[in-house]
């Protein structure tokens, strides 16, 4: 098995290895493959949820729910549509939305979009898209990358971000707009 290092001491399986793990879970209910996915994504998901102002305990609960969904929905994974990280992200995102909605109103939840049939017309090869997007993200300045990450971690408004970082709201708004424009330009360059 090929291993690339992120330089953090933790070996990270490359994207195609992760895709093979998901396919092994889907076709053979392979527990070792599932454990490998868990070890890779579980700790990252925990940080991801905690950044959205969840307690460590709640974050662990959502990690469990996310990974349980990975097990159940492995057969829906389509490597042509999304890379594994993107697929896991969308599952985690939907569970976070459900969780926040349950807090507000425990009644009806809308049907899970993951279960709906997908159209083929957008099927840019998932792994390629992931690579293109990753390159674009790394082309941003560290400040701009932080702004984009914050947008994914929580639904904090720009006003809340401004007071947290101790900078004026206007500055946050103009920085966010610059980061968006730069990102869009980089994405289009990579197309």
């Amino acid at each position: 098995m090929a291993i690339v290092s992120l330089g953090e001491g933790l070996p990270v399986p490359p994207a195609d290895e992760l895709a093979r793990f998901v396919i092994a879970v889907a076709t053979n209910r392979d527990r070792n493959a599932f454990a490998a996915l868990f070890r890779h994504f579980g700790p990252r998901l925990k940080t991801f949820f905690m950044r959205g102002s969840m307690s460590a305990g709640l974050a662990e609960d959502l990690v469990q729910e996310t990974m349980l969904s990975v097990w159940r929905k492995a057969s829906y994974f389509d490597p042509g549509r999304a890379g594994v990280a993107t697929w896991v992200f969308t599952i985690a995102r939907n569970l976070r939305i459900d969780h926040l909605r349950r807090q507000r109103n425990p009644a009806d939840l809308p049907p899970d979009p993951e279960e709906e049939p997908q159209t083929l017309e957008d099927a840019l090869l998932g792994a390629e898209r992931d690579l293109r997007v990753r390159k674009a993200l790394s082309g941003l300045s560290p400040d701009q990358q932080t702004i984009i990450r914050l947008a994914y971690y929580s639904e904090k408004s720009q006003t809340e971000i401004a007071s947290e970082l101790g900078i004026p709201l206007g500055t946050v708004k103009s920085r966010a707009r610059l980061a968006m424009n730069r990102l869009r330009a980089l994405l289009e360059d990579e197309e």
């Binding site: 994504f41 990252r44 998901l45 991801f48 999304a82 890379g83 594994v84 990280a85 993107t86 697929w87 896991v88 992200f89 969308t90 985690a92 995102r93 998932g126 898209r129 992931d130 293109r132 997007v133 990753r134 674009a136 993200l137 984009i148 990450r149 994914y152 971690y153 990102l183």
Partner: peptide, 9 residues
């Protein structure tokens, strides 16, 4: 969504 995947990764 792919950007979300990159952020998670």
């Amino acid at each position: 969504e792919a950007l979300g995947g990159a952020v998670l990764e």
